[in-house]
């Protein structure tokens, strides 16, 4: 046992559990890839790559830039009381971005023909709705920030 752990790096159960998992995944993968193996492989690996190497770096860079700007310009030249604004911008920005991430096909009018074939309706309101929801998110965050500013001034 000790020799196995030294050579392998974990308990034998670790190996058995993973092999069982790979076998079941393989059984499903054979069926998954049946009609279009290349397309499915591209989608499956592409899904991990799209998140780990595209989406995450993209929002991390935006957030890092935001934080750097905040660190350098958090002073208030007019003598206003200082209330950190960073998260009042982060929250609506991230939620609006999340809605875009989930509903971009609807928002950008992709798949319109199939949408109409399924529903009998035209999908032409989603961009406007997303903008309205985003306006509400930024607006509510602005109101919350204004309230905090006012309290800070009063206090």
């Amino acid at each position: 046992m000790r020799a196995f752990v030294a050579a392998y790096g974990a308990h034998p159960l670790h190996l058995l559990a993973l092999l069982a998992s790979f076998a079941l995944a393989g059984y499903a993968a054979v069926r998954l890839a049946e009609s279009n193996p290349v397309g499915v492989a591209v989608w499956f690996v592409g899904a991990a790559v799209a998140h780990d190497l595209l989406l995450l770096p993209l929002y991390a860079i935006v957030d890092t830039a935001l934080v750097r700007t905040w660190r350098h310009r958090r002073g208030f030249p007019l003598g206003l009381p200082s209330v950190p604004w960073l998260n009042h911008l982060r929250l609506p920005l991230m939620v609006s971005g999340l809605l875009l991430l989930v509903f971009w096909p609807s928002i950008f009018g992709l798949g319109t023909e199939d949408y109409t074939a399924a529903t009998g309706l035209a999908p032409d309101q989603y961009l406007a709705n997303w903008l309205l929801v985003s306006a509400a998110l930024f607006g509510l965050s602005a109101v919350a920030y204004a309230v905090r500013l006012r309290r800070a001034r009063a206090g």
């Binding site: 279009n36 096909p105 798949g111 199939d114 399924a118």
Partner: peptide, 11 residues
């Protein structure tokens, strides 16, 4: 994608 009728997946 499926609930939005954006049938771009490979099957």
């Amino acid at each position: 994608l499926n609930i939005q009728y954006f049938y771009v997946f490979p099957d």
